[in-house]
Simulated assay, not measured.
Amino acid sequence: MTAPEVPLLPDDAPDDARSHVGRRLRDVRSRAGVSVSELARRLGISTSAMSQIERGVMQPSVSRLIAITDALGIPLATVFGPGRADAPEDGAHGYAIARAADAAPLPLGGGVTFRRLAPGDSPGIDYFESVYPPGSTATGKDRLFRHEGYEVGEVVSGELTIDFTDEIVVLRPGDTISYPCDVPHRLHNTGSEPAVARWLIVHPDR
C-alpha cells in the first residue's frame, strides 16, 4: 500500500541534505537501466512526482523509499551509498569495520532519518538505524504499508508505535519485535522524544 509523501525538509536545511536521497535514487535507478517514467508506473505515481523526489524537491517518506527500492529490486542499503569499511591490508582475516564518522544519516520526509550500520556489502540483508522525531510517521496518517523481506527491530531509546491491521504495539527501550514485512504495518512516534531503533531486514532471494 502506498501513501503520499510526508512534508519536505525545512527551507533552511542544507542543499546537500535536501537532495541527497533523490541523488542516490537517481543513481541507482540509472544503474538499473530503468527510466523515470517506468519506475513511476511501477509505483503508481506520476512521472512528475518521481522526478521531484530525484531532484530533491520532495523528500520521500519511509514507505515510499522502501517501495522504490523494492520496485528496483535492490537492497534498501544501496541508497545509503557505498558501505565504506576498513579491513586488514592482506584481507586475511575476512572482516570489515565501519567507522561512526563515515555513517552519515539519510534524511527522509517528516524529519525521519536512516543510518547504515552494516559495514561493507551485506548481500541479502539491510541493517540500519532509524530515528523518528515526535509526531513523525513512516507513511500517511492511518495508512498501513507492506514491503519485501522479514524484519527484526529493537528500540534503543524513546517510544515507537507500530500499527498492524488489528492491533497496536508500543515498543520501549530494550523491546524487540519481528514480523514478515508483507504484514500491513505503520511505524510512528507518539511520544515526546525521538525514537531510536535498529533494524535488520532479511531478503532471502537477494
Score class of each variant (00 low, 15 high):
residue 129 E to P: 06
residue 28 V to K: 02
residue 16 D to N: 15
residue 80 F to S: 11
residue 192 S to G: 07
residue 172 R to P: 12
residue 108 L to D: 02
residue 12 D to C: 11
residue 135 G to T: 08
residue 151 E to H: 01
residue 108 L to Q: 02
residue 194 P to R: 10
residue 99 R to N: 12
residue 120 G to E: 06
residue 140 G to H: 07
residue 10 P to Q: 02
residue 66 I to E: 10
residue 78 T to C: 05
residue 4 P to Q: 05
residue 193 E to I: 15
residue 9 L to P: 01
residue 82 P to N: 04
residue 194 P to W: 14
residue 170 V to T: 12
residue 125 I to Y: 06
residue 192 S to M: 09
residue 65 L to V: 01
residue 168 I to H: 12
residue 44 G to W: 09
residue 144 L to Q: 05
residue 11 D to C: 05
residue 144 L to I: 11
residue 196 V to S: 01
residue 31 R to Y: 00
residue 169 V to S: 07
residue 143 R to Q: 12
residue 21 V to S: 10
residue 191 G to M: 07
residue 24 R to Y: 08
residue 191 G to S: 14
residue 95 Y to M: 08
residue 81 G to D: 08
residue 189 N to M: 06
residue 143 R to G: 00
residue 136 S to L: 08
residue 50 M to D: 06
residue 198 R to V: 13
residue 1 M to P: 12
residue 195 A to K: 02
residue 147 H to W: 06
residue 139 T to D: 09
residue 84 R to H: 14
residue 28 V to R: 06
residue 83 G to Y: 06
residue 142 D to H: 10
residue 191 G to L: 07
residue 198 R to H: 13
residue 131 V to P: 07
residue 104 A to V: 15
residue 125 I to C: 06
residue 143 R to V: 12
residue 131 V to H: 04
residue 204 P to H: 08
residue 28 V to S: 07
residue 52 Q to D: 14
residue 133 P to I: 08
residue 107 P to E: 09
residue 162 I to L: 15
residue 25 L to I: 08
residue 100 A to W: 10
residue 90 D to I: 02
residue 15 D to I: 15
residue 113 T to K: 08
residue 202 V to P: 04
residue 90 D to V: 03
residue 162 I to P: 06
residue 147 H to Y: 05
residue 29 R to T: 03
residue 192 S to A: 13
residue 69 T to S: 00
residue 13 A to M: 03
residue 15 D to K: 07
residue 197 A to R: 06
residue 77 A to I: 03
residue 14 P to M: 05
residue 30 S to K: 15
residue 94 G to Q: 06
residue 120 G to T: 13
residue 167 E to V: 12
residue 91 G to C: 09
residue 194 P to Q: 12
residue 85 A to S: 14
residue 46 S to L: 11
residue 27 D to R: 09
residue 162 I to H: 11
residue 83 G to A: 05
residue 60 P to G: 01
residue 18 R to C: 05
residue 46 S to T: 15
residue 40 A to D: 02
residue 111 G to L: 02
residue 166 D to S: 14
residue 149 G to T: 02
